[in-house]
């Protein structure tokens, strides 16, 4: 998620469209909007990728509107219960909701940026324990089924937990995988017997 030029996460986070309102007319650039128009006229609204939006916004060619991933509706849902919002639906499968939010945050001015940061932090904090809990839970299920030779048939959990897992954004998925791997290897070590290996 960092600003590193080579960071894949950063590239993925930039791969989101944002709606910009052009302040000036741009000739011969109508194809950006995918339409048949030849030119972009002033005051027209165009969805452009975030990586292109920077230069347009900083050069004062366009204004942007807060994308729907962070709309007032999403905000109030997150304020009410961060765990019940499906972040992956907001940015597409495997999308980086936090990364996207962070880039929007850098485009905003002080107060709005602060508000955005608070929203991201509050959401992340609210969801983190659930992410880790589920990952640890899954690690222990997998470890024990792998030992007894039974396939992953006993998976599932209740419906709410599954919905939450499906709603994880890319960053949370990464955390989930990290937690699962470390819990699993630790658990395996605790359960393995030492005698065979040493004698």
């Amino acid at each position: 998620m960092e600003d590193d030029y080579y960071s894949i996460d950063s590239i993925l986070a930039e791969n989101q469209k944002i709606q910009c309102t052009f302040k000036v007319s741009v000739p011969d650039m109508g194809h950006l909007d995918g339409g048949n128009e030849r030119d972009i006229k002033a005051q027209s609204k165009v969805q452009v990728p975030l990586w292109m939006a920077y230069i347009l916004i900083y050069s004062d060619y366009a204004d942007f509107t807060i994308p729907t991933s962070f709309s007032a509706r999403v905000r109030s849902a997150l304020n009410a219960e961060p765990r019940s919002v499906r972040l992956s639906n907001l940015v597409g499968q495997g999308g980086m909701w936090y990364g996207f939010g962070r880039m929007i945050m850098h485009l905003l001015n002080d107060d709005a940026a602060k508000e955005m940061s608070d929203l991201l932090v509050k959401t992340f904090r609210g969801r983190l324990p659930e992410v880790i809990d589920q990952a640890q839970h899954f690690a222990s299920i997998h470890a024990s089924t792998a030992d007894s030779g039974v396939g992953g048939g006993a998976l599932g959990g209740d419906h709410a937990a599954m919905a939450f897992r499906e709603g994880l954004d890319g960053t949370e998925r990464e955390l989930f995988a990290l937690t699962q791997a470390s819990t699993r290897s630790t658990k395996r070590w605790y359960e393995a017997s030492d005698r065979g290996r040493r004698s």
Partner: peptide, 10 residues
Amino acid sequence: AMGVLIDIIK
């Protein structure tokens, strides 16, 4: 997780 927090805290 701490890395993510560093990124998103203004």
